[in-house]
Design a protein around this nucleic acid. Structure first.
Lengths: 334, 334
DNA sequence: CGCAACATCTGCAACGATGTATGCCGGGCC
DNA sequence: GGCCCGGCATACATCGTTGCAGATGTTGCG
């Protein structure tokens, strides 16, 4: 079986607790004793059993990350950043894919998954604020993404409106007047889609361009959906000289379809997205988009969550920091 | 504090052990008793403490997955599939990013990470077989990717040679004779790069086309490296009418550079890749590539690993199943 | 009726670590 | 000289669960 502290203690001729103290860097240990213990650890190849430590200490040093699916590039890249941020602070990340299903999201918040983590980073897609609050109980929780907004919950925000307005303004500055929007419904006002649509509208208004609901095409935030939506738009006969995909994969799907149908990008139709995933830089043509500050989001979210975990009982005011965004002008909309 | 089995036992008027038995679906429990326990669990909102369970049972029901970085699309998609496969068998996945660094890879195999998982899925990039065997000890282990091959280790294989040969043959069938290869070194014979290069050579030989080392460009398997390599190739004046990227992002990077330099794809230069990541289907033009059977790889790897875990002491012969591949012909090389 | 065989439930110890309380030793202070 | 204190090490209980070995009750059958 595995080597335990007991074995090390015996080998070093000290008590079990002294071994524990050495491992936990207890201050008052004679250098000689410490060395003897360390040698024994080395010799026996002892490894602390994190499970036992967790049971005793009540902490697992793991953060849960609940998101829809890692195969979505934005989530994968965000997850990567979050893991790095957590790692550098001594925490690991346990990822749970919700598949965007209500039941899975609930299960992730409530289920046995809870007991494995000290706190949760959650990108909600189908639960609302009430459900989240009810399900999370007292477990430290930080939300990401903007599908849920609530003054009672800690979350790291993206400047959806401002960033979307910046993209739209850029397209307008390039002379485009009929900018199609993929991924929102005409009436949307909340969630990432609603907020980004708002930004779009605000930029139109600021430029004195009329808003036309016919240009707003609802669809899932996926490549194929973006392509389909574009196809439908082209078939419908609605005129447009630019496409704004509310995320990058949508925009890339749209661009694919446009080129397939023989439209020139950006000469005839400009395309812009939102997220700045790695792929966008190397698309052909490369995609104009807005970087929502992914690394910053990851850092802040992890930091905020750990802060909540480590001062669990302290009273605290809700925090909702906003990450800075940056417009990335590329070939698809110069 | 949290509700424990003891609380449930008291509430239901049974012994602690009976609660445990109910939870673990022990056969011989009177339906009435079972119901009473379940009601108590419901009422108190009891959740089994997985940490304690793990300590006692010696199993964590978690699989470790060690890979370079989730921001690499192929890894992200594979991770997603692996998590689904594991989940459906009652296991969770703890991902560890090695960043392709030897020390991190070693730490993942040896460090405290070990005690958190029942077994490891490992995509080695810098450790060799000896180091892996030494570091892994007796922990169940299944390798993925082909940078390491060894008859002593369980692994799930891709048909690198055959698949690369199929891609090359397809390009040859399309009339291409000067096919550049990105991502391998002329001398490579082992690892994914060597095997794929072998397949390329075999297809050339079969078609009676001479192999020209000048067409083989070594580079990292990343988008920007693919673009750079292509740029260097164009500058060098070497003639070529097709590019075979040893993975998709390389090919996509190459395609980006080709289009940027005004070369027509596929008219002047055809492009093909390897992996069939989601993005390739919607690239412009869409990328011809080979699907290595990702879902099957994930399934097999998880199944094999779990089999090793659950029959730990049994003698077993090494298994190295191969996943079936499939050529996906698209616009970039019709 | 007695006893085996089975169904149902229980108590105790243990998994491997850490927190708390405490013991012991030597030296400085009154 | 006695006392206190800081430095160092230890014993014991404990975290919440499961494995093992019974204890108890119930049924069937010779």
């Amino acid at each position: 079986m595995a080597v335990t502290m007991n074995d090390v203690a015996r080998a070093a001729g000290v008590s079990l607790k002294t071994v524990s103290n050495v491992i936990n860097n207890y201050e008052f240990i004679r250098p000689a004793t410490k060395q003897r213990v360390l040698d024994a650890i080395d010799e026996l190849g002892y490894e602390t059993n994190l499970t036992a430590r967790s049971l005793r200490s009540g902490k697992t040093s793991m953060l849960g990350l609940v998101l829809a699916d890692l195969s979505v590039p934005y989530y994968a890249e965000l997850a990567s950043d979050i893991m790095k941020a957590a790692w550098s602070r001594g925490y690991r990340v346990l990822v749970e894919q919700s598949g965007n299903e209500t039941e899975h999201e609930k299960a992730a918040l409530q289920g046995p998954f809870r007991s494995l983590t000290d706190g949760l980073l959650f990108i909600p897609l189908s639960l609302d604020a009430e459900q989240i609050i009810a399900a999370a109980g007292s477990k430290p929780l930080v939300l990401l993404g903007e599908f849920v907004q609530d003054p009672r919950l800690d979350m790291v925000l993206i400047q959806n409106q401002e960033a979307a307005a910046a993209v739209t303004a850029h397209l307008l500055a390039g002379g485009r007047r009929r900018i199609a929007v993929l991924g929102a419904h005409d009436g949307d006002t909340t969630g990432s889609n609603g907020l980004r649509l708002d930004g779009y509208k605000a930029a139109l208004t600021a430029a004195g361009v009329e808003y036309d609901p016919a240009l707003v095409v609802p669809c899932n935030w996926r490549r194929d959906a973006g392509a389909d939506a574009t196809s439908r738009l082209l078939d419908s006969g609605v005129e447009f000289d630019a496409v704004f995909g509310l995320n990058d994969v949508l925009a890339l799907g749209a661009m694919h379809e446009l080129l397939l149908r023989g439209r020139k990008v950006p000469e005839e139709i400009a395309v812009a997205g939102f997220d700045d995933i790695d792929e966008s830089r190397f698309a052909s043509p490369s995609l104009t988009t807005v970087a929502p500050g992914r690394a910053e989001i990851a850092e802040r979210a992890v930091e905020l969550l750990i802060q909540r975990i480590e001062s669990k009982d302290a009273v605290h005011t809700v925090q909702q920091p906003e990450a800075a965004f940056e417009l990335r002008v590329r070939q698809s909309a110069p």
